[in-house]
Each structure stands twice: as C-alpha cells, then as structure tokens.
C-alpha cells in the first residue's frame, strides 16, 4: 500500500516538475531563429523519448556519447560531431567518427561511460533497452530513439536535434532535403500496381541464407523503391530463408550485403534465377539499408536505381 502511495506521489511530483519546466521554458525561451550563440538560451530542454521517459537536458550538451552507429551518423549530419566524445566500435561513419574514444561494441563499457561524465547519451530503445536502463540507474541522462520506418527516422533526427541543441535551420533544411529526395523516388514508384513490381531478394548472409522480412527498413525501402520483397511472408524480421523458396520465387533483382558477388554468381543451383541469368545482382553497403540514419535515403535511391530499369522494360 505504501509502495503505491509512494509511486503515486512520485509521479505527481514529476508531473508538477514537468509543468513547472514547461512554464519556465515559455518564460525563458524567446522566439526567433536559434543561432549558435543562442543555444544556451534554448535550455533546459525537456524531452519525452521513445521509451516514454521524460529527460531534462539542463544546458547545451557539450559531452555527447552515442552508443549506436545510427545516432553517430545523425549527430554528424546535424553538425554536432565535434561535441561527440564517445562512440562504439561499430560507429564507422562518417570516417571522422572512427577517431573518437570507444565506449564499447555490442556490450558497453559502463565504467568508462560513467568516468567520461557525458551530458547526454544517445541510444536505440529496442536494441539497447537493458543498457539504457542501467545507464539511467547510474544517473546518466539517456535519450533513446527508436524509429521503425523511414518517416520515423526523420522524426528521430528532429528529436536528436532538439536534445543536442543543433541549429534549428540546419535541422529543418536537412529534413527538408531528405523528404524531398524521398518524394522524388516515390513520385516514380508509388503508383506501380502490386503485380507489376519487380521481385527483389536482399541477401543479408549467405551461409546460412538470411534475408530481411517485414518490419525492417530493408523491406520498407524495397516497397518504397517500387519493388516487392520475396520474403514478404516471413514471420520474423531477419529470417533464415530456404534456398528452395528463393529458387521458386525467382527474384529479378538480388541485392548482396556481404561483398560476395562472385560467390553468388557461381552458385550452381542459383543459375536458373532470373536475377543471376540477367546479371541483376548487386553489391550494396548494408549500412545504408539498415541504419536508421540520414543515409537510409541513399539506400532508397540506390534501390530505386536497381529497380527502375525493370519497371520501364516491357511492363
């Protein structure tokens, strides 16, 4: 009983606090464009992140740690790269990010993160739930994004922009550019009927054969780019895919993510597949298909380039 009371009063205090902060923000933050000098005035910022947590960033974060490659890419795209003090070993883009201090790989080095005293840590909710919880209990402000679709990625970019106090103009122009590029692809593909869409297979791994199913950016990008994912009916997002089904569904385009073009082209049982026969097998940098950052639009454009010729020819 006392527990319940306690949580209740807790949330009451929190709600009051948030209300107070919101009022303060309205009082303290003047309107108009934010220039770099005015960053300080935009804070404190209160954010409700994708884990439902409310995070208050008291002042412009100068020590940012990104624990996901996608967040690192977003930070650099927003011009906040110089304020990033820690990344993971997987954060390889842009190349400058590789020079930053490493705070772990899939497993994070919590001691190191704490000792670096970050102003904010940026994570991905669905992949790093436990790590994010742990960091919060260690008293570190963590903002978690969790985009599931291309449009949500744009939302995540905006959120990260607010968290780190990026120049508002810059955030808006980046998002506008990304939306524009997406719309240009869609203008050519959105009206293709289901039956006229070329069949696409994206190979995530060769042995065992794995692909990307519904619920992944890969699947959405294929759809947006005018194609049809042959793994449309797989129950999980990264399924093992049967070679038999691959041959029966006969993809017209195969996209490889492991730089193994020669291996695939010489696979004896794949010689009858349309994509192999017509040499429509392509190698792609998997990061632009799976990382929820600004380069996802690159992935969309590349995929559209593979698919476009097949729509024009004889359909």
């Amino acid at each position: 009983m006392s527990m319940i009371l306690k949580t209740r009063s807790c949330s009451l205090y929190r709600a009051l606090g948030i209300l107070l902060l919101v009022i303060l923000m309205f009082v303290l933050v003047p309107g108009g464009a934010w220039s770099l000098d005015e960053h300080a005035q935009a804070f404190p910022v209160t954010i409700k992140d994708s884990t439902g947590n409310t995070v208050v960033i008291p002042s412009l974060p100068r020590r940012i740690i990104s624990i996901a490659p996608s967040n690192t890419e977003i930070l650099y795209a927003l011009g906040a790269g110089d304020r990033v003090i820690g990344v993971t070993t997987a954060c390889d883009y842009p190349p400058e990010a590789r020079q930053k201090e490493k705070v772990g790989d899939v497993n994070l080095n919590f001691e190191k993160i704490v000792s670096m005293r970050p102003d904010v840590v940026l994570g991905v909710a669905s992949l790093q739930g436990a790590a994010i919880e742990r960091l919060r209990r260690l008293g570190i402000p963590v903002v978690a994004v969790d985009p599931k679709t291309v449009d949500e990625v744009l939302g995540a970019i905006e959120l990260v922009g607010r968290v780190v106090g990026a120049d508002r103009e810059r955030v808006q122009s980046l998002i506008k550019a990304l939306v524009g590029r997406k719309e240009r692809v869609l203008a050519a593909t959105s009206r293709i009927p289901e039956t006229a869409r070329p069949r696409v297979f994206v190979e995530i791994w060769h042995e065992p054969l794995m692909t990307a199913g519904p619920g992944t950016f890969v699947d959405e990008i294929i759809q947006l780019a005018g194609g049809k994912n042959i793994a449309f009916d797989s129950g999980n997002p990264w399924p093992q895919f049967s070679e038999e089904l691959l041959i029966e569904r006969d993809p017209e385009i195969i996209v490889l993510t492991c730089h193994n073009l020669e291996q695939v082209m010489s696979e004896a049982s794949w010689q009858g597949i349309s994509a192999v026969k017509n040499r429509r097998v392509y190698e792609i940098d998997p990061d632009i298909l799976v990382r929820p950052g600004p380069r996802l639009i690159d992935g969309l454009e590349v995929m559209a380039r593979y698919i476009r010729p097949l729509i024009a020819v004889g359909r």
């Binding site: 791994w205 042995e207 054969l209 093992q240 070679e243």
Partner: peptide
C-alpha cells in the same frame, strides 16, 4: 552467426 550455425550442425545449403 555463421559460426554458431556451423557449430550446431546442419545440412542446409549443402550441394553436390
């Protein structure tokens, strides 16, 4: 993933 798969043992994807 490939290593774990190999260690578990499988005839998947094997050919002539």
């Amino acid at each position: 993933h490939e290593i774990v798969f190999w260690l578990m043992g499988s005839l998947s994807g094997r050919g002539w």
